[in-house]
């Protein structure tokens, strides 16, 4: 008797499931792994897309805690945007597997690895476990922090939206063109600051700001992590502090997740400024969009190095 009751209850649940699951939406559901991709998808997709970001902006991307709303959104998504280059590999594959949405499986138009076509830096080729924990053999994945990254992400997102919704191509093209125009203006602003920052030196916690520093001509002298993903040790911090003194390095850059006790100790011991910067949109209150984040990054670096910005 009890078995029959349970079976009936499960059958009832199963029968009810499709009614809930297949709720249709008018707009294209886009799920992005990070807020940077989500912001640009909103810019290009306009009111034809509904966009959700899984990460919120302050996480370490190896430790994003996914939630039921992420699973539900992925199960309904028509487009899935990931940075790629193993940036989200700790959690994306299992989330996609649980969502079981064939529209966004690898190889389908709805699955978009935004890194395709990007020329990554720090390509390691072969790496072994001895080289660290957070390893990216295909290159540094933090290209969302390259001033040129916005244009690349916008181009890839345009391609993706057109592939999934070709009837709206003209609409997406127009919005993309308008966004690129804003990028042109922003890039001119940033270029002006980057030229003045060239030649400075920093220490970073992790190599997440390397694209930005390269664009600015800032030399990364050392990282607080002895190896990628390995927390700083007292001995390593002492060695970095010594290097900072020898090379007159006055700024340590961290993200929200890496603004740790060890980073504060290194700053205190070296007398350097500890500068927390957004590693993603949403990483600080100023970083409300990708362009706003880049403005904030450039302004923060300029302030940290005492560079005067003339508003044009």
């Amino acid at each position: 008797m009890r078995i029959h009751m349970l079976t009936n209850a499960l059958i009832a649940l199963a029968a009810f499931a499709p009614l809930v699951r297949d709720a249709s939406v008018d707009r294209i559901m886009v799920v992005a792994t990070i807020p940077d991709l989500a912001d640009i998808a909103r810019e290009v997709g306009g009111d034809k897309v509904e966009v959700k970001s899984i990460a919120k902006g302050r996480e370490n991307l190896h430790s994003v805690r996914t939630r039921p709303s992420d699973l539900v959104a992925l199960s309904r998504a028509e487009v899935f945007l990931e940075m790629g280059l193993s940036m989200e590999h700790a959690w994306v594959p299992r989330l996609l597997l649980a969502a079981r949405n064939k529209r966004i499986e690898l190889g389908k138009p709805g699955f978009v690895n935004v890194s395709e076509g990007w020329n990554p830096i720090l390509m390691q080729g072969q790496q072994s476990r001895r080289d660290g924990a957070d390893l990216h053999p295909r290159g540094n994945p933090h290209y969302n922090l390259d001033p040129a990254g916005g244009r690349h992400m916008a181009d890839r997102i345009l391609e993706a939206l057109v592939a999934v919704d070709p009837s709206s191509e003209a609409y997406y093209e127009a919005r993309h063109a308008a966004y690129v125009e804003r990028l042109d203006a922003a890039e001119a602003r940033w270029k002006n600051i980057e030229e003045k920052l060239a030649g400075n030196k920093v220490v970073t916690y992790h190599r997440d700001f390397t694209y930005l520093n390269q664009a600015c001509g800032i030399e990364e002298v050392a990282t607080l992590e002895p190896k990628p993903g390995v927390p700083p040790t007292a001995r390593h911090i002492a060695s970095v502090v010594k290097t900072m003194r020898e090379q007159d390095v006055r700024v340590i850059i961290t993200a929200a997740w890496s603004n740790s006790r060890q980073a504060r100790k290194a700053a205190k011991d070296s007398g350097a400024l500890l500068l927390e910067l957004p590693a993603m949109v949403g990483g600080t209150k100023e970083s409300t969009s990708w362009i706003a984040m880049m403005d904030h990054l450039h302004d923060s670096l300029a302030a940290a190095f005492g560079v005067r910005i003339e508003n044009e």
Binding site: T7, L10, L13, A14, P68, V72
Partner: peptide
């Protein structure tokens, strides 16, 4: 099987 309930909940069942 699992199914969504609204935008932020899911129910899973097995037998």
């Amino acid at each position: 099987n699992w199914f969504a309930v609204g935008d932020s909940s899911a129910i899973r069942f097995s037998a």
